[in-house]
């Protein structure tokens, strides 16, 4: 078989990237919040696929377990419990529609153009994967970054307490 122009890695990248952009577009365009939540889950899973393509396997799995399996479940629970319905149509300033969307495109295009400059400072990757990334991450988490790591546990504790206090029913 002749060498094709598109290597398998590039093909996988375009498939996953297309899926991510479709999911993000669907998040913007859907009317019902549950459909937006499902589109966001699609984005997260395709991003996890991209992380796997880059060799960051531990981050990919943590993304699926924590983001896709916990945070988005929380979103879906809240949408179900609050019985969020479809968005009603309210008046919108025409300026927002006619000036806002082009400005958003301009923001994205300028960010992309910055990246495409030849001396953008991003070196070409020397290897496809970082070998033993999981071991290096774990040793870094417990050696150099142990202080932020323990602080995140306090952060989560504070968040739990805050969420409990906020969601309490008023005491009659």
């Amino acid at each position: 078989m002749a060498e094709s122009l598109v290597s398998p890695a590039l093909l996988t990248f375009f498939v996953l990237a297309g899926l991510a952009v479709l999911g993000a577009g669907s998040l913007v365009l859907q009317k019902h919040p549950i459909h937006s939540a499902l589109s966001l889950i699609v984005v997260m899973v395709s991003l996890a696929g991209l992380y796997l393509l880059m060799g960051a396997e531990f981050v990919a799995m943590v993304q699926i377990i924590v983001y896709g399996g916990a945070i988005m479940v929380l979103f879906i629970f809240v949408i179900m419990l609050l019985n969020a319905g479809e968005e009603e149509h309210t008046d919108f300033s025409q300026l927002a529609k006619f000036a806002g969307l082009p400005l958003a495109f301009a923001l994205t295009a300028s960010l992309a153009a910055l990246v495409f400059k030849p001396d953008a400072g991003v070196p070409a990757a020397t290897q496809a994967f970082i070998p033993k990334a999981t071991e290096q991450i774990s040793s870094m988490l417990f050696k150099e970054f142990v202080y932020p790591f323990e602080l995140t546990s306090f952060l989560i504790l504070v968040a739990i307490m805050g969420a409990l206090v906020l969601a309490q029913r008023e005491k009659k």
């Binding site: 549950i34 499902l38 889950i41 899973v45 396997e57 531990f58 799995m61 943590v62 699926i64 377990i65 896709g68 399996g69 916990a70 479940v73 879906i76 629970f77 179900m80 999981t134």
Partner: peptide, 25 residues
């Protein structure tokens, strides 16, 4: 054969909550 086979199984367990939550809703 994956170096993170166990994490893949946990990821799938985490995602399988959706089947049930969405079915109920």
């Amino acid at each position: 054969k994956s170096d993170i086979g166990l994490l893949v199984l946990f990821a799938i367990t985490a995602l399988s909550v959706y089947g049930i939550a969405l079915a109920g809703w």
